[in-house]
Simulated assay, not measured.
Amino acid sequence: MKFKLNDIQNRWNKSNPFDFSDLKALLINCTLKKSPEQSHTEGLMSMAETIMQANGVKTELIRAVDLDIAPGVYPDMREHGWEKDEWPEIQKKVMDANILVIGTPIWLGEKSSIATKVIERLYGYSGKLNAHGQYAYYGKAGGCLITGNEDGIKHCAMNLLYSLQHLGYSIPPQADAGWIGEAGPGPSYLDEGSGGIENDFTTRNTTFMTWNLMHLAFILKNGFPAHGNIRKEWDESDHEHPNPEYR
């Protein structure tokens, strides 16, 4: 879906002095709802996607629950007893993208089970190396968006952003945003009268996150500096002690 941007968002898009046209972004919606059911998480993610598209970034938003993704922590779970696994095709999209945004609803104060599965599958590829001998996700920028009807935005964001940086993603300032309604049952982000779309705090933080992801991906588009982080050099070095010697 296309998100209707406000005046300052449109003004920043028009006055952007940077060329982001060679950047690609993958947005993975980890809702529990299969298409075509409305996803409030996807509604918020669409704001970020619309800003990226307006600045020349090539985007793709996928709903993970629509795909047959096997659980596990290996690149292709068909090699580990699963008959079907569509994750390898998603992994190709992940590796082709400069930016990854994970969106999730909050359930019981936690990210969704689908979001957990996505992080586990990303983890299954984290031991691979890039052309410089660094871990495969080096040079990519990551962020997250959260929605729900209960507290937990920062908790879910901490979990997702820690996971992404641990796997090798670079995290810019203000790399998360979210919206929650009142505690308990009630209207969700896209519902009429919820105040979600009109919420200035959510709109501002989502806008800042999107621009900061584009800026960081622009800075890193030639890769993360390859020095002091080369796995092959470490493994082949003749270091006498398993850890630095204390003196």
Rank of each mutant, 00 (worst) to 15 (best):
L160Q: 02
I230G: 01
A70S: 14
A131V: 12
P244R: 11
L213T: 12
N29S: 13
T104M: 08
A131K: 13
L32Y: 14
S113Y: 12
D68Y: 07
N205E: 07
N149C: 00
L61D: 10
P185H: 01
G195P: 08
I8V: 06
G124K: 12
I102L: 10
I197C: 00
A217P: 12
F18L: 10
N212H: 14
A131L: 15
T116I: 04
T31P: 04
G195E: 07
A183L: 09
A136F: 12
G148V: 03
N55H: 01
D22N: 15
F20K: 10
Y123W: 15
P88M: 13
H227Q: 14
K4E: 03
E233K: 14
F18Q: 00
A115S: 09
E150V: 05
E79P: 14
E42A: 15
T207H: 06
P242N: 06
P88R: 06
M52G: 02
N6L: 00
P172S: 01
P71Q: 13
T203W: 08
E240A: 07
L61Y: 02
N229Q: 06
E198I: 03
D96P: 06
S15T: 15
D96H: 06
S194E: 03
L26P: 00
W234C: 00
E240Q: 14
E86W: 11
P17T: 14
S46V: 10
Q165M: 12
K84L: 14
A97N: 03
L26M: 03
N222R: 05
L122K: 08
T203E: 13
T203G: 09
W87D: 04
A183Y: 07
N212Y: 05
E42S: 08
E245H: 05
N29A: 05
M47E: 05
S39Q: 00
G103M: 04
I51T: 09
S170H: 08
D76A: 05
E150M: 15
Q38N: 09
Q53A: 06
H239A: 10
S39N: 02
G81C: 15
P17E: 02
S15F: 05
P17R: 09
R204T: 15
G148W: 07
G103D: 03
N6R: 02
E192N: 06
E192G: 05
I8G: 01
A64I: 14
N159K: 07
Q174S: 13
G81D: 11
F201A: 11
P173Y: 11
P36F: 07
